[in-house]
Design a binder for these strands. Structure first.
Lengths: 202, 202
DNA sequence: CCCGGTTTCTGACAGATGTCACGGCGAGGA
DNA sequence: TCCTCGCCGTGACATCTGTCAGAAACCGGG
């Protein structure tokens, strides 16, 4: 009985190469291959894969959002997130989005096929080093408002803009940003934003 | 006559998948595969590839530096840079480092094999869209000092640290940073740094 | 030689940023 | 009930950052 796979990655060359790699396994069959997150669900509904391998960085809809939609609308399809290392924070959100596997692109070559088979056997598959890093990063120490302000700071550069968007006084925004920098152990709002993002606190 | 290939990419899963993909071509043979930039030259000297496919983001030595070393020490080996899209600025430096091809990972699946064959035929191969973007970005308008200050700003966060490192007055550093922000059309030193980096001006 | 343009460098000044101390509010324990 | 604790929100203040006008050094052309 072959395992039917859906492959989603925006880098066409990589997607194709992964498809060839997985196609070498005698019990695998790649039944769909898309380059955008918002094409994942339609392709899954049409081709009914057993496992969907989703990259996180995709146009249209990111891999985590696509995973959430997929698990809701195509219950028989298991989701494995496949992404670049260094984004340890995504692991937690991937699990919350219903993914049952998380494989990093730095992993050994056979890790992917192994993960697919174990997911089909009902296991949850997470790279141990990644799991450890996520546990080490811990829960977010940011308060809800600090998080809001940081998210707003991502697109609006200046304090005044953030304050206007959130209907706060400028002093308040500065205060939350200050709290975020101390909690992340950084010096700038910029670094705080980067660190919080990496750790999945946003 | 088979074309001998060296493959360098730090993401093992991707490297392996690319190796399989290229191995499908009857006239290709992957003779070496490394995950670090500083292992490229030794591998090339040992296995004598005709073409080296180098990713840019690698530990030890980045792909551009590895390309420079490789073209100097292993003249018979042609270098093709293979990297993520969006780093248009690297194209210029790649060419200066002696690369004869530049393929983005967003390219169609057969672009890589095509590029290898054309490089072997003596052509230079560059993605047309990428070439256009590079031309549009143009030469760096930054003066040498502005460039120095921006590079220093990459690691040192505060103006005082940059000034101390470059033996300049703080006002001077601020002035160069200001010039850089206006020339990049941005508002912060942070954005200026990001834009200048993307365009390969550093 | 002089002159105009460019680069390098500097201090002054306005505006943005980060830190601090403070008050209000709700949850939970003594 | 009272108290404590944590979060939310605010203004004041010192510091940092970005912009400006301008001086000194350098270079190539006339």
């Amino acid at each position: 009985m072959t395992i039917r796979l859906l492959l989603a990655d925006d880098q066409e060359l990589i997607r194709h190469a992964l498809g060839v790699l997985l196609g070498l396994e005698p019990d695998f069959e790649v039944v769909a291959s898309v380059g955008r997150g918002d094409e994942v669900t339609a392709a899954a509904l049409e081709h009914r894969p057993d496992v969907a391998l989703l990259d996180i960085d995709m146009p249209g809809l990111d891999g985590l959002a696509a995973a959430a939609v997929l698990t809701a609308q195509v219950p028989g399809c298991r989701v494995v997130i496949l992404t670049t290392f260094g984004r340890t924070g995504y692991l937690r959100r991937a699990m919350e989005a219903g993914a049952v596997g998380f494989v990093v692109k730095d992993a050994p070559a056979d890790a992917l096929a192994d993960a697919v088979r174990r997911v089909m056997a009902g296991e949850r598959v997470v790279d141990p080093a990644l799991a450890a890093a996520t546990l080490a990063a811990g829960e977010s120490p940011l308060t809800a408002r600090e998080r809001d302000v940081l998210i707003a700071a991502r697109s609006s550069a200046t304090v005044a803009e953030i304050a206007a968007r959130l209907y706060l006084a400028e002093g308040t925004v500065r205060n939350y940003l200050s709290g975020a920098t101390t909690k992340t152990g950084t010096r700038n709002r910029t670094e705080a934003l980067r660190v919080a993002d990496e750790r999945g606190w946003l």
